[in-house]
Design a protein around this nucleic acid. Structure first.
Length: 474
RNA sequence: GGCGCUAUCGUCUAACGGUUAGGACGGAGCCCUCUCAAGGCUCAAAUACGGGUUCGAUUCCCGUUAGCGCUACCA
């Protein structure tokens, strides 16, 4: 039984890189019929915040993927400490009494603090009993073996000389386990079988292999994922890139969760069959560790355009594939956010087909469908004037349209289409010259959804009122 | 600095030694058309560099360069 885990630490919001790691884990588990464990890695009490925890949940929930089990490392500290001390008891770790300040002063590049690895057990116990603070360090076996090798499911066989591995910390001087200690202990205890995580952990894997060994636990299968980078090739960060890297930014802009998942799944992974737009079940079906790349992927965004064009395109694709009910349901919050208080589900359901091919993000409904909810008033009267025409032509077209639309027997698009084409011919106007003034009068702008369908949805009274208003502006 | 990993169009990627190096987004153009979209067609655009191995390298090996990561009592 495959068990994967996603282990965010609540020290910032959920960003797109984290979301992708979660998605890959989720897909891998679902593909294998396994279990998704969500584990909150909150062993750094200094930097954890509730806000960040909330925002991580918010982001994960929005993805609509879900998880099967959830744990918090802060509730499992005893287990971690126990595990750490068991390593100490086996003689594979030692107390390091070097003050943090002194270690810092010694500079980087050290493997261990002088004198500490070989401190006699009695002496170590005595100083600890005396209350002297210490860090528990893993004693890297540099004499007994020359290297640590791991089989990575993505990167293949990777190894590192023990001579290049420092004696890393297991327990901090405040007694809290470090990430390495807590993570490995929990992976073992929670019976995690497959670890998929960001490539930034590749170098840590050698330490982890040593910990698993010391614990007498089997090393899970491990696969590192190439990283998501900013357009300049730099690491994504809140500080330099701001909210554009936050998952909630995508949500607020009106990405469909699945479109977003689809987009991220294609960063660093390929189904190798030229398919781009994939449903959730296709994604699960196709997902394979074999398709994961080894090089980092850049996600495109700029200050004025925060979203990767491909993400937007994919979203539009999925938008078009939605059935009308779901589209309406998804649209509603954005309609309200745009301030169209008079919107009802029924009305939105009528409008949705007219705008679905014209919006790329759900929030576009605010700018694309505005005239269905509010009277267009702010437009420039000059817009009413058709190509190769003048104000007189516009007025003529609008007046005739008024007559025709008042008289027409049914107010459906087919009838309106026929009637207005006849009207144009009567006036010896090109269709465009006839329709454009009407469109602007009714929509308040030149670019809008198909005219006859729009008129039908708006209804006779509204349309006539707007034609009158436009006439008044000429 | 040391160690590890990586390197195909602007971006995401395909090509398990032999292809006119394929697809997608974005860009340009044309068509369709009541506008805008959508859709259809076309074009521009890549194997980082230098050595090997091989009859033949995007593909295998070495080096250079570049990028990323680790080198914390962060994760």
């Amino acid at each position: 039984m495959t068990r994967v885990r996603f282990a965010p630490s609540p020290t910032g919001y959920l960003h797109i890189g984290g979301a992708r790691t979660f998605i890959f884990n989720w897909l891998h588990a679902r593909r294998q019929g396994g279990t998704v464990v969500l584990r909150i890695d909150d062993t750094d009490v200094e930097r954890n915040t509730q806000t960040s925890l909330d925002s991580i949940f918010e982001g994960l929930q929005w993805l609509e993927l879900g998880w099967d089990e959830i744990y918090r490392q802060s509730e499992r500290l005893d287990l971690h400490r126990q595990a750490a001390w068991s390593i100490f008891e086996k003689g594979l770790a030692y107390r390091d009494f070097t003050p943090a300040s002194a270690a810092e002063a010694a500079g980087g590049g050290w493997l261990f603090n002088p004198g500490m690895p070989d401190l006699a057990r009695q002496e170590s116990d005595r100083r600890a009993a005396a209350g002297e603070p210490f860090v528990l360090r893993f004693k890297v076996p540099r004499e007994s073996r020359s290297e640590v090798a791991v089989q990575d499911l993505v990167y293949g066989s990777v190894s590192k000389a023990t001579a290049d591995l420092e004696d890393f910390a297991l327990l901090r001087s405040n007694g809290m386990p470090t990430y390495h200690m807590a993570s490995c202990t929990d992976d073992a205890d929670l019976r995690i079988t497959d670890i998929l995580r960001g490539q930034e952990h590749l170098a840590n894997t050698f330490k982890h292999a040593l910990i698993f060994e010391a614990l007498g636990a089997a090393m899970p299968r491990i696969a590192h994922l190439p990283l998501l980078m900013a357009p300049d090739g730099a690491k994504l960060s809140k500080r330099t890139h701001g909210p554009v890297v936050s998952v909630t930014t995508y949500r607020d802009a009106g990405f469909l969760p699945h479109a977003f998942v689809n987009f991220l799944s294609l960063l660093g992974w390929s189904p190798k069959n030229d398919l781009e737009k994939l449903s959730q079940s296709e994604l699960i079906e196709l997902f394979s560790l074999d398709g994961i790349n080894r090089s980092n992927a850049i996600i495109n965004f700029t200050e004025d355009d925060p979203f990767d064009p491909k993400a937007v395109w994919l979203n539009a694709e999925h938008l078009r594939a939605l059935d009308l009910e779901e589209l309406t349901r998804r649209l509603m919050p954005y309609v309200q956010q745009a301030g169209f208080a008079n919107a009802t589900p029924d009305r939105l359901r009528a409008i949705a087909p007219l705008i679905r091919e014209r919006i790329r993000l759900l929030r576009d409904v605010g700018s694309v469908a505005d005239f269905f909810f509010v009277e267009p008033r702010g437009y420039d009267p000059a817009e009413l004037i058709p190509q190769k025409g003048d104000a007189a032509m516009a007025a003529q077209a609008l007046r005739h349209a008024k007559e025709v639309l008042s008289a027409v027997s049914a107010f459906d698009h087919a009838t309106l289409d026929a009637a207005l084409r006849t009207a144009a011919a009567d006036l010896k106007l090109k269709t465009g010259q006839m329709f454009q003034p009407i469109r602007v009068a009714v929509c308040g702008r030149k670019n809008a959804p198909p005219l006859f369908e729009t008129l039908e949805v708006l209804g006779r009274d509204t349309v006539l009122t707007r034609l009158d208003f436009a006439l008044g502006m000429l």
